[in-house]
Write a protein that binds this DNA or RNA. Structure first.
Lengths: 190, 190
DNA sequence: CTCGTTGATGAGACCAAGTCTCGTCACCGT
DNA sequence: ACGGTGACGAGACTTGGTCTCATCAACGAG
């Protein structure tokens, strides 16, 4: 038998989502989250840098996936095709487990300005990573920024719709569809 | 003679920018900022909700200006023309005083992840306010979001170039120019 | 002129986030 | 058998942020 129960990190994430949803993010203390996970405050901060990050850990992975996908697109691909490749590659992050947690996470984040702030920061990182990957492909500056912005917007819109159980399409299909709509709106803009 | 020196709020802003720039944002305590302004920590928090906001106060005004400008555009205006009107209207916020503080502010914000987080949040608010104003004009959803995103990107790019003293064009001219470039990139996107 | 009100501030207690140091002890390789 | 490793607990400590209460110049009513 192990000295400590395994998956301390996962237990912390679950405890945090549960408590934040039950009684609210602001009134929940880190000590409470740690206690529900069978740990202490000090250990919480060994796994996460702050009280917010426990909800967003794993999203650095999204940046990596988007950048990898864009970089791996064939040489002749247009910027938009590279963004599509990035979204396809990011599909790897969207497991059924994520789908189950999505709505609860969205609700909790929506309830707190502090959490929305972190979400905005993560989104900015996503856009920066994707724009960087496009620039490394030789896409010139204003185009790379616009394409990355559309890609990240599609990424988030698709995630929102993916969480609605009424829509049974795969995340990849939803992302392609959102990107197509955004691109159409952009080219038609006057 | 007044009981208190006037402009407590402004003194706090100046003290904060100075100290954050001199010795770094993270190692500066709110008590130090208040002391340099001739006040106490409690009074700091009467003027600003937290340690970060002292650098961003006044930016809610930007959302208001953008929304007002977009709402005031003539009835027949296209979405892009409404965004242009919004940027023109926001010109009111860019005084010579702002121009002098801009580069220092940018440097301080760039030095701290916590401050970049707040900046990303403010940007998201700007985009949401502009998109809302466009939707109220009857612009349908994906188009409003894309136009707002381009507008906010132009807003920030113009502010960056406006801070470079090498470029003597007015903020309004710079913003129109940036928006034009971004729009061109968007319509040419493949 | 006097007096009560107003409102910005100071003083300081208080809580929680986040940091840091030190001690513990199962596990693992030698 | 034994020393090293690493995840964890305990608890002190700093600082961001909140709250309550006291202070006192300005101001207006009488």
């Amino acid at each position: 038998m192990a000295r400590w129960e395994p998956d301390a990190r996962l237990r912390l994430v679950r405890a945090a989502i549960d408590l934040y949803a039950e009684q609210g993010y602001e009134v929940t203390t880190v000590a409470q989250v740690a206690e529900r996970a069978g740990l202490t405050k000090a250990t919480f901060f060994r796994h996460f840098p702050d009280k917010r990050e426990v909800l967003f850990a794993g999203q650095e992975h999204h940046s990596t996936l988007l950048a990898e996908g864009a970089a791996a697109a064939p040489d002749g691909a247009t910027p938009l095709e590279a963004v599509t490749a990035a979204l396809d590659h990011a599909t790897a992050a969207f497991t059924p487990e994520q789908r189950a947690w999505g709505p609860r996470l969205r609700a909790v984040v929506a309830s707190s300005a502090e959490l929305q702030e972190r979400a905005a920061f993560k989104r900015a990182h996503l856009a920066a990573a994707l724009a960087d990957a496009l620039r490394r492909r030789g896409v010139p500056d204003p185009t790379a920024a616009v394409a990355a912005e559309l890609g990240v917007e599609a990424f988030h819109r698709a995630f929102d719709r993916w969480g609605d159980t009424t829509d049974d399409r795969s995340y990849g299909d939803l992302a392609r569809s959102e990107l197509h709509d955004l691109h159409a709106a952009a080219t038609a803009l006057r």
